[in-house]
Write a protein that binds this DNA or RNA. Structure first.
Length: 261
DNA sequence: CTGGGGAGGGGGCCC
DNA sequence: CGGGCCCCCTCCCCA
């Protein structure tokens, strides 16, 4: 994907980066973000072109472009591989309306759409030297839509699917579609009922590692005092037998061309 | 609390 | 050796 217009966006971001401004990124992201109200939950139908007819009848094909109240997102979407529209800033009206939307969506991930996790990925905030050891993970790939920065083209590409609404990975057992293959595989456990992760203490099984982790945290916090001799749930993935079940959910159908880009 | 989906990060492999 | 891609992890939000 040879997007990343050498355009001003990037330069701008570089500039921002030079200033060591995650804040700049964030604020910019914020501005754009307001336009990017994440697609409604349960929204599976992308923009019309990508995913096929599997979409449920009621899965209103409303991407983030089609906003409930009839307003529509600014046309800053990419439609074709690597074809990016030049990002544009919104005029106030747009921003306002979209802010409203954001409100409704309870801004899903903290403030910025492409939020940087708590962990200071960019350390350049304080020191200010862009190439310092602090910024050991360079994020040279900027999303034209939300100005999110990513460390690789792949991550950017993946991220962009959010904006395009494309979900290349379809579950063959239901109508769900996913942007990431891992999501699909994870989802398939819902169908298979597979729960390979078990809490040692309560014997509760989980289908996901993070579910176990979360449970474990709660479990530990809840009864730290109780358990003196026995560590609750070890952070180990496979508790007992690895999924005995043959991959009923195995990638039978390799998702339709992983974004033919 | 739990279950499920969404999203970004990071390590590793391959070309 | 670097970049692209993949897999997996972890966290967040929401029902």
């Amino acid at each position: 994907m040879s997007h990343l217009p050498s355009s001003s966006v990037r330069d701008h971001m570089k500039w921002a980066g030079l200033l060591g401004c995650e804040a700049v990124l964030s604020s910019m992201a914020l501005m754009q973000a307001s336009t990017m109200a994440a697609p409604p939950k349960k929204m599976m139908a992308p923009l019309g072109h990508a995913p096929p007819q599997r979409d449920g009848p009621d899965s209103a094909p409303q991407s983030h472009m089609i906003l409930p109240s009839g307003m529509s997102c600014p046309p800053l979407l990419i439609r074709k591989e690597g074809e990016f529209q030049a990002p544009r800033l919104l005029d106030e009206k747009d921003m306002r309306t979209n802010e409203d939307m954001q409100q409704k969506k309870k801004n899903r991930k903290s403030v910025t759409p492409c939020k940087v996790r708590e962990q200071p990925v960019f350390k350049m905030g304080t020191g200010g030297d862009e190439n310092g050891p602090a910024s050991k993970v360079q994020k040279n790939f900027i999303c034209d839509h939300c100005y999110g920065a990513f460390r690789s083209g792949y991550h950017l590409k993946r991220h962009i699917l959010i904006h395009t609404g494309e979900k290349p990975f379809a579950c063959d057992m239901c109508d769900m579609r996913f942007i990431q293959r891992y999501h699909l595989e994870r989802h398939k456990r819902v169908h298979s009922g597979e729960k390979p992760y078990q809490c040692e203490r309560c014997q509760q099984n989980f289908s996901r590692t993070d579910r176990l982790l979360r449970h474990r945290r709660l479990c530990q916090g809840r009864s730290v005092a109780k358990v003196e001799n026995q560590p609750c749930c070890e952070p180990r993935p496979y508790q007992q037998e690895p999924p005995p079940a043959p991959p009923t959910w195995s990638p039978l159908h390799p998702p339709p061309g992983r974004l033919a880009v």
